[in-house]
Amino acid sequence: MSDAVRVLVVDDEALVRHALRAFIADDERITLVGEAADGSEVVDACKQVQPDVVLMDIKMPGVSGVEATKRVLEWNPSCRIVALTTFTTEWRALEVLHAGACGYLVKNSTPEQIIDAVVAAHAGDRVVSPEVQARFVRAAIESGATRTPRAC
Rank of each mutant, 00 (worst) to 15 (best):
A36Q: 11
P77E: 05
T85L: 08
G62S: 08
S40C: 02
S109C: 14
D3R: 13
A68F: 02
G100N: 10
S129T: 11
T89C: 03
V33A: 00
R150N: 12
T110S: 14
A22M: 15
V66N: 14
M1F: 06
V63T: 11
N76V: 01
F23A: 13
N108Y: 12
V5M: 05
R150C: 14
I114W: 07
E74V: 09
K107D: 04
P51A: 08
V137T: 15
F23S: 11
L15R: 11
D27T: 09
R150K: 14
Q113M: 00
K47A: 09
K47D: 06
D57P: 08
V54Y: 01
V33R: 03
E28A: 10
A83K: 08
F23D: 14
K70R: 13
D44I: 00
I115V: 15
A145V: 05
E28S: 05
V128W: 02
V66L: 14
Q133P: 11
A22C: 09
E13Q: 15
V10M: 11
V128L: 00
T110F: 03
D116H: 08
A14S: 07
A83L: 06
T88D: 12
A22T: 15
P51S: 05
A19T: 13
L97P: 02
E90Y: 02
I58V: 15
Y104N: 03
I114V: 15
P111Q: 08
G144L: 13
A22N: 12
V54G: 07
D52Y: 10
D26Q: 15
V10G: 14
A25T: 07
V9C: 12
A145R: 10
R92V: 04
F87C: 03
E28R: 12
T148G: 12
S109W: 08
D11Q: 11
A37Q: 09
R92T: 03
Q113E: 12
T69G: 13
L20F: 15
Q113F: 01
V54N: 06
D27I: 10
L94F: 01
D3W: 14
M60Q: 09
V137R: 15
G34W: 01
A19S: 14
G103L: 01
A134M: 15
T88Y: 05
T86L: 13
M1E: 10
T69R: 13
L73C: 01
D3S: 13
V137M: 15
Q48W: 00
D57N: 12
A145G: 08
